[in-house]
Amino acid sequence: MAKVMLEKAKTLEPLNPNKSTGVFGGESSGILNWNDIAYPHWYKMYKRLVGNYWQADEVNMQSDIKQFPTLTEEEQDAYLKIIGLLSTLDAPQTRTALLISLYATDPSVQSIMAVIAQQEAVHNESYSYVLSSVVSLDEQNKSFQLGRTDSVLLKRNENLTKQYNAFVEEPTIENILKTLVYTALLEGMFFYSGFAFFYNLARHNKMVGTSTMISYINRDELEHGRFISELFRATLAENPEYNNGTFIQWVYDHFKQSVELEIEWSNYVLGNVEGIDLDEMAGYIKYRANKMLRMMGLHDVYPDYTENPMKWIRAYVDNFDGTKTDFFEQKSRQYTKTSDLNGFDDL
């Protein structure tokens, strides 16, 4: 199949219809009427995203400032490494979301990706905020250098880096689809061993401010993963020549590779942390991979991991009813009753 480079979408084309004729490579005027879009349910996704607005400095870190020196050496090391991991992933995600929007010819996609890009910028700011609360500037800088210097982290991010850069160099439909695959992996699986570490601290009443921040990020990422999965399905449906055995096998292969790399990373960074079962963590990673594949319209690759093996983690993510936990009552979150109606099943 010959490579066809996509052009960046024009800002305004008044002779084209307002309702886009295609997500990528289609025609639209550039005028967004949310009541007349190609995928009407995306308006609800947009509303959920903007309803999640929060700022990093809303979170009270006073107790964390006092507690960080009391953590074990292993916990402190994992804390700094995982913040380094998360910043490595969220920083380029802002730019990737904006790049995807530049080639989207559906103005609703442009608007949704703009919100996602803004939220990813807030996430990255939050990592700077929590580190500045608990360690010196030198330690902060070391943590943010890990994405460039830690061999295990570099190996874990290598495939994602290659694909994101391939999209920059060759903006084709194939590279957009592959970038959406890695974005879905990032939003729906890559973060989760790191999230689990902070939730594990919180269930032992440690670093509750940090876990609150992570829960807000986690909530955003769940919504991002939903939309990216929808965008992948729509793009694949509009370009059926890629809906073939070769491409779908590429997706499954890269999911499996990513799972193995994530398990290797989690063993490396969580191996000496008390309270986390590494076999359970590996099962959770496989469960998350299955869940993202189903959201993308594909089938499970780990049939033995269709249920969440780390159910305790559900109590540490805010629900999707638009409310936020009071920052002075964080400890009560671990006793909150959960149900399938409040979004926790997405974990």
Rank of each mutant, 00 (worst) to 15 (best):
S128A: 07
L85E: 03
Q62L: 12
D150I: 01
R203W: 02
F328I: 09
N18P: 08
W312H: 00
Y79C: 04
Q62G: 09
L71G: 11
N244S: 10
N157C: 09
M213W: 06
N200M: 02
P40F: 13
Q62A: 15
Y335Q: 11
E238S: 08
K8V: 10
L153G: 05
Q67K: 14
Q110I: 15
Y242L: 07
Q62E: 14
Y252P: 03
T105A: 03
V181F: 01
N165I: 10
E170N: 15
P240H: 14
G188E: 00
W265G: 00
G271Q: 09
I173V: 15
I276S: 00
G194N: 05
L160A: 15
K10R: 15
K311M: 12
F198I: 02
V134R: 04
D300L: 07
N290Q: 12
F68W: 15
Y268K: 03
L270R: 06
Y129G: 04
Y216I: 05
K291T: 11
E174V: 03
L15F: 06
Y53H: 14
P171L: 10
Q93W: 01
R95E: 11
G147L: 03
I214T: 04
S258H: 05
P309G: 12
K324M: 11
S266K: 01
F195I: 00
L298T: 06
T235C: 13
E13M: 14
L270F: 04
K8S: 10
P92F: 07
G194C: 02
H123Y: 00
D57N: 13
W312V: 07
F247P: 06
D150G: 03
L80F: 08
R233H: 11
N165D: 11
N342Q: 08
A38C: 08
F328Y: 13
T306D: 01
D90G: 04
E125C: 02
T161V: 13
I100C: 01
H41W: 14
K178S: 09
A237W: 08
N159F: 13
I65N: 09
V251W: 04
A114M: 11
E75D: 05
H204R: 12
T11H: 12
Y192V: 02
D277A: 05
L6S: 12
R156E: 01
D345G: 07
Y287F: 15
